[in-house]
Amino acid sequence: MSEDLHIKMRDVRKAFGAKHVLNGINLDVPRGQSVVIIGGSGSGKSVMLKCILGILRADSGSIQVNGREVIGQSTSDQSEMLQHFGMLFQGAALFDSLTVWENVSFGLIQGKNMPRGEAKDIAMAKLAQVGLGSEVGELSPAELSGGMQKRVGLARAIAADPDVIFFDEPTTGLDPIMADVINDLIVKCVKDLGATAVSITHDMASARKIADKIAMIYKGEIIWEGDAIEVDASGNAHVDQFIHGRADGPIEMDVLKP
């Protein structure tokens, strides 16, 4: 096998009590490519990313990053690995005791011991890339709208120029124009910096734009994966239903039909 895999997941399982969230995930993320994960709400997408980061501990299976096993690694190995990761959390997860620019430069100051002045310049540049002016940098996260918080989270995730970037719903809560700016930014991170990206999104327009590969997760398993251009001709009823957003089809939502 010639493909250079950055992340390789095999039969990864994770349960919370009796609730089985991941039921044997197999996923390959090639180096320098952008993989988009699609799937219904509550199907375990965020949990999957957290298992790769080691924030949640998978129950069984194997997750390899750069060929090194993640499950069960020591805390120091984990923090060493995370130096090369950037993560945008679904809820932004900004530190509310710090200002916006301190949030963005956090990984540079704390993780890489960069002087504050230099880190602030980088933070302001990253904020500008996500469409936020320097006046926003001095505010506290609580003073921002939801979409602005999301963009600050995005700026923080890419601030330290990581090798792998995880985006948990990067465009949710943004207007269509800003969403497209963010899509371009993600593409740029992958193309220019050579980063590997894994994004979760419900927004098919965004998925088509940023993805090299698309994988669909359903009931804790990857039921389809392929190149982004193949998604319309996947031949998979679940995928078809999802990308066209139809209520009737093989995916049954747990809602009471009147």
Partner: peptide, 20 residues
């Protein structure tokens, strides 16, 4: 900080929550 994932975010920014 825990329920808003800020503690998880610390770990992804190369900072040990115990230390910080």
């Amino acid at each position: 900080m825990r329920v808003t994932e800020q503690i998880d975010a610390l770990a992804t920014l190369s900072t040990n929550p115990f230390k910080y």
